[in-house]
Design a protein around this nucleic acid. Structure first.
Lengths: 133, 133
DNA sequence: GCTTGACCTGGAGTGCGCTCAAGCTCCTAC
DNA sequence: GTAGGAGCTTGAGCGCACTCCAGGTCAAGC
């Protein structure tokens, strides 16, 4: 099974332009071409692209992704280095999530505060429209 | 208690240049100045800056932070809008953390794979150096 | 009074990750 | 055979969030 660039883009959630851009900067190996010179992506290509988008989502810079991609191309001997990259990235994701967690707490606190302000306001309104005793 | 720009930068984890930049683009109200024309940050200023850095960490674009800051300046009447912004941001953080979680699972899987490759390799080595029966 | 260092301003420059434009080719369908 | 649509290449442009620079001011310490 092969895919056009539009289908590949759809499958991995990138734009067509971005796919070509990734190829240009050497982040992905150029896919095969059909008789008309158009790119044809294999299932394997798609899987790799999907994995790359996961790395991107974790905030890995393209520079490092390219390094990883190069190592992957260089074969089994680089497995230890690749593992190291992923282990570090995992640590960085954990750290980032912890940061986000404290930000969430700040947000929750602020939102609660706004909630209280609203309630006080509504309370005041209720009292104002109440039939006086 | 007041702080120099260097102290303010230290306190909120931004660079001096970034503090001035934030002021220039209208993200923070200009702090007071001393007799020599230098910025003097109050505790309140610092607290606000710290909160802003939290918003930044959540990935809120500066454009929106500026909107929020403007609303905060406009007083109590904008509380509902400000709350809405924070509630949305919270949702976006939750979504992002969920994404990161699935990325983590992919990373874990890949790392485990590398682990297995290493073990197999070590096993092979052990067998090769073993005294033959 | 002179040096030093922190701070000032306005404006230019940077790095990242795309994104778009122009002008072309190819295939398909009518 | 021609119109339309997808795809091609090269190269420029963009938005974001800073970051740096040049040239100046000011206050403190020697």
């Amino acid at each position: 099974m092969t895919y056009s660039i539009a289908q590949a883009a759809e499958a991995c959630g990138l734009s067509i332009d971005t796919l070509r851009y990734y190829e240009r900067i050497g982040l992905v190996v150029p896919p095969a071409r059909d008789s008309g010179g158009r790119r044809t992506y294999s299932d394997e290509d798609i899987n790799w692209l999907v994995f790359l988008t996961k790395l991107r989502t974790t905030g890995m810079p393209i520079r490092l992704m390219r390094e990883y991609a190069q190592l992957a191309q260089d074969g089994e001997a680089t497995a230890a280095l690749r593992k190291q990259i992923l282990v570090r990235q995992r640590a960085s994701v954990h750290a980032h999530m912890a940061e986000l967690q404290t930000c969430l707490e700040v947000l929750d606190y602020k939102i609660e505060n706004y909630q209280r302000i609203e309630e006080k306001f509504q309370d005041k309104q209720r009292k104002a429209t109440e039939v006086p005793a």
